Simulated assay, not measured.
Amino acid sequence: MTKHEFEVAMTCEGCSGAVTRILDKLEDVKFEIDLPKKLVWIESDRDVAFLTDTLKKCGKEVKYIGTK
């Protein structure tokens, strides 16, 4: 599985909680959230466009940084 790095405009625990709830619905996905750095790492075989669109469902600005 590829590990992708995203910058998500999270400002509080509620924001990271929203990201967690959205990503928990996906199967075969592992993820980590670094709230102070506003980073989300997603380990998945799904394509970047799908992962980006999924993260945008939390209502925050999402920027794809690259693979890690």
Rank of each mutant, 00 (worst) to 15 (best):
K25D: 09
S16E: 09
V48G: 12
F31C: 10
M1C: 06
T67Y: 03
F50S: 11
T11I: 07
L23V: 00
V62P: 05
S44I: 04
K56L: 05
D45P: 06
R46C: 00
K60S: 01
V48Y: 11
A49S: 14
C12D: 07
T54Q: 13
S44Q: 04
L55E: 02
P36E: 10
P36F: 09
K37E: 13
V48L: 14
C15R: 06
D28W: 04
G59E: 03
K37M: 08
T54L: 08
K37A: 14
K38L: 06
I22M: 11
I22Y: 07
T20R: 13
S16L: 00
K3Q: 11
S16V: 03
E32H: 05
K57R: 14
K30C: 00
I22N: 08
T2D: 11
F50A: 12
E27H: 12
G66S: 08
K57S: 07
K57A: 06
M1Q: 08
G17W: 04
I42G: 08
K30S: 10
E5R: 15
G66D: 08
K56Q: 14
R21H: 14
V8W: 03
C15L: 09
D28V: 04
T2I: 05
K57I: 00
I33C: 07
C58P: 01
I42E: 09
V8D: 04
G66F: 06
D45M: 08
K68I: 09
V29T: 13
C12G: 01
T67F: 04
D45Y: 06
L35C: 10
E61D: 08
I42F: 08
K25M: 09
V62A: 02
E7H: 12
Y64W: 10
K37C: 01
D53N: 15
G14C: 03
K3R: 14
D28S: 13
K60V: 00
M1R: 07
E43R: 07
S16N: 00
D24L: 10
Y64C: 02
K25F: 00
D53R: 12
F50Y: 15
G66E: 05
I33R: 08
T20G: 01
G14Y: 00
A9D: 15
L35P: 10
F31S: 09
K60I: 01
E13Y: 08
F50K: 11
E7N: 09
Y64S: 02
A49C: 03
R46A: 13
M1S: 13
E7D: 03
K60G: 01
D47P: 09
L55A: 03
S44N: 05
E5D: 12
I33L: 10
C15Q: 08
G59N: 05
T67V: 13
G66N: 07
K3C: 06
I42Y: 08
I33T: 09
K25H: 04
G59F: 02
L26D: 12
E61S: 04
I22Q: 07
E27T: 14
I33A: 07
T52G: 02
T20K: 14
E43W: 02
F31M: 10
K38H: 12
G14S: 06
R21W: 11
R46Q: 14
T52F: 09
V29Y: 02
F6D: 02
K37D: 11
R46F: 11
L26I: 10
